[in-house]
Design a protein around this nucleic acid. Sequence first.
DNA 1: TCTCTTGTTGATCACACGATCAACAATGCT
DNA 2: AGCATTGTTGATCGTGTGATCAACAAGAGA
Lengths: 211, 211
Amino acid sequence: MSSTPQKRAVRKSPAERAAEITEAAREIALEAGLTALTLRNVAARVGVASGLVAHYQPNMDALVSSTFATIVAAETQEVAGLLSLQPGPSERLALLVDTLLDNSRLDVTAIWVEAWTLGRRNETLAASVREQMDAWQKVFQGVVEDGNATGAFNVSDAAAVAWQILGMVDGLNAQALVRWDGVNDRGTHLARAVEGMVGAAPGSVVAKPRL
Amino acid sequence: MSSTPQKRAVRKSPAERAAEITEAAREIALEAGLTALTLRNVAARVGVASGLVAHYQPNMDALVSSTFATIVAAETQEVAGLLSLQPGPSERLALLVDTLLDNSRLDVTAIWVEAWTLGRRNETLAASVREQMDAWQKVFQGVVEDGNATGAFNVSDAAAVAWQILGMVDGLNAQALVRWDGVNDRGTHLARAVEGMVGAAPGSVVAKPRL
DNA sequence: TCTCTTGTTGATCACACGATCAACAATGCT
DNA sequence: AGCATTGTTGATCGTGTGATCAACAAGAGA
């Protein structure tokens, strides 16, 4: 339990220190939520006085907002990367459903949910949330339009359907946050639902079995 | 802007005062969220000293939790009441989808979302959240089993499908909280999705047109 | 009318938050 | 070696929170 009571933090370049702070903020947010992002909390993790954190940030709202964006954007890009490896739209949609429901990203889900309510009192964060939601929606929309082109899907309003799928995934994840037990075969059920929305043949979107 | 600076609050019976406090808490939560439920806030609304609110509640976590339960349970019962007026399971499911997406309950949705994250630090609230989610799930499950019996639906695991629909509705509502624009025909899309999940004929669940 | 029960007050405590800034000290430059 | 730059400190301010409790006063019963 020996903490590091070093009297004074070593002097570092502004870029380096700023990176340390944003990284510490990221870790804290993932572990304890955006609400835990306080001046003193972040400072303690970096091993630095609270004033220094304030010195590197215009205000805490900004740090909360940018931390949210960092975490969420990373997830979006990671999943989008996985998608590009799939052969066709049905497989892509299946992977999307499968990946987003595998409960390995509950920490990120918690941050999403927190951001939705925190956004009511933090306009900077609210803007960030909308931006990141748009990014996610675009990913879904791409897959849907793809399937429309190949004839695998039949959707008149790809954008609306993409929003809808996104909302469903968010809801199911948020639910898992509180009630991680209870529901079996979430992937299969969601696959059926999505097939209904995109007008795909029943069974064409197949979620891989959980291990 | 004349507030009521009455020197001393009139003396009331414990039952009456307790009712005033819970009612004030309900109003505050609906207007400004569960986070706004502070001793001083509630006391000011009742027109009473902050100490009195504390006197009537074991602690604030309990007031937050019971206020959440009050608000949410009322909504569940209201919607369940509307359901019983419908002739068959397809109409019931359609009404459910329709009612829950009509954006007239965004204040309640906000409280749901807030409770999901607040529950991480308020165990009493977390228990309440699980309880109320169970109540909602039962409502959906009843409709699904109903449709199974009449042959309108074809579901092997009614409980799981009910959870799934609930999660989807929650997610779409939460989305509307942040992005109330953007998506058209939410009811129609969700109806298609739900048809896919319950194994109903396409078009059998028809959302009524928005007015 | 007096007394006693009890609903009510409001000052107070300990704590946590964001923000500010004069003072300090480490580093690089001359 | 001396100096100027600048990264860093930590005390401090104002605000907000939940909780506590001696003191007060309104009302009911005698």
